[in-house]
């Protein structure tokens, strides 16, 4: 299971401090999610696209992610633009196009795509461990950070474990179907996965105690805030301000 598709690269965005990028992503998300001016939303889509191009992400991977985001949007386009009318223009077709619904679907599609692209360009371009590290700098509670860290660390281990159990079942001739046997078998697979995870957690914690764990999770590599990070933050603040002005002008 390789999850950090975009984390490694040589673009200007990959080189930035994760703190700068995460702050930029949060500010941008809030602004775009709450905005409702057309000019601003189209401009935001442009900004996000520019960010993805700057990050030089693999186009095919970006498209795959967008496809996933837009399956939800497709559902909106099917459901939102229609309204039931009392006296249909054509008999048997009691639906009419609702312009407000169309606008709503378009607004949500714009926002969703702009924000998904921005997350790919700004956050997914840092390895996840560095994102945790950035959160640690912002005084995120230690306990929450540890859950984050262990969750991500053991996700891969458990995914392999699951596949091992799954292969074991298939080797013994298990074919899933819609029957009690299948559901009971899956429940036992799940139960076994949970029991093994529980035991693993116990061993991990004992190993941590052996190494003197006392509630602090230390990070070994440190960030150094550089001039380019400051410049990026300044530029990004400018972009946000422009979008904000664009939104105000339209209102």
């Amino acid at each position: 299971m390789h999850l950090e598709t975009f984390a490694h690269g040589h673009s200007p965005l990959h080189r930035l401090d994760p703190r700068a990028k995460l702050a930029a992503a949060i500010g941008y998300s809030l602004l775009v999610a709450l905005g409702h001016d057309w000019a601003m939303l189209w401009a935001a889509l442009g900004v996000s696209l520019a960010a993805v191009l700057t990050a030089r992400l693999r186009p095919w991977e970006v498209l795959k992610r967008l496809l996933a985001v837009n399956t939800f949007m497709a559902m909106l386009w099917v459901l939102l633009p229609w309204q039931v009318v009392e006296a249909p223009a054509w008999p048997g077709l009691g639906l009419a196009l609702n312009t407000h619904g169309v606008e709503l679907a378009l607004v949500i599609t714009l926002k969703g795509n702009a924000l998904a692209l921005a997350l790919m360009a700004l956050v997914a371009t840092s390895p996840i461990n560095q994102v945790f590290h950035a959160l640690a700098h912002w005084r995120t509670p230690q306990k929450l950070l540890q859950i984050f860290f262990f969750f991500y660390r053991y996700l891969h281990v458990l995914h392999r474990e699951y596949h091992r159990l799954d292969w074991g079942m298939r080797v013994r001739g298990f074919v899933p179907g819609s029957n009690w046997h299948t559901y009971r078998t899956y429940a036992h697979l799940l139960g076994m996965l949970l029991v093994r995870s529980y035991d693993r957690a116990e061993r991990v914690y004992q190993a941590m105690l052996c190494r003197g764990f006392h509630g602090t999770y230390w990070v070994l590599d440190h960030f150094a805030w550089q001039r380019r990070d400051g410049i990026f933050c300044g530029l990004w603040a400018g972009v946000l301000l422009l979008l904000l002005l664009l939104g105000r002008a339209g209102l």
Binding site: I147, F150, L158, E161, Y198, A201
Partner: peptide, 15 residues
Amino acid sequence: QMPKVAILAAAFFVA
């Protein structure tokens, strides 16, 4: 309990 919560959460994610 931290590792327990995290690792069980990961197990649920996989499931």
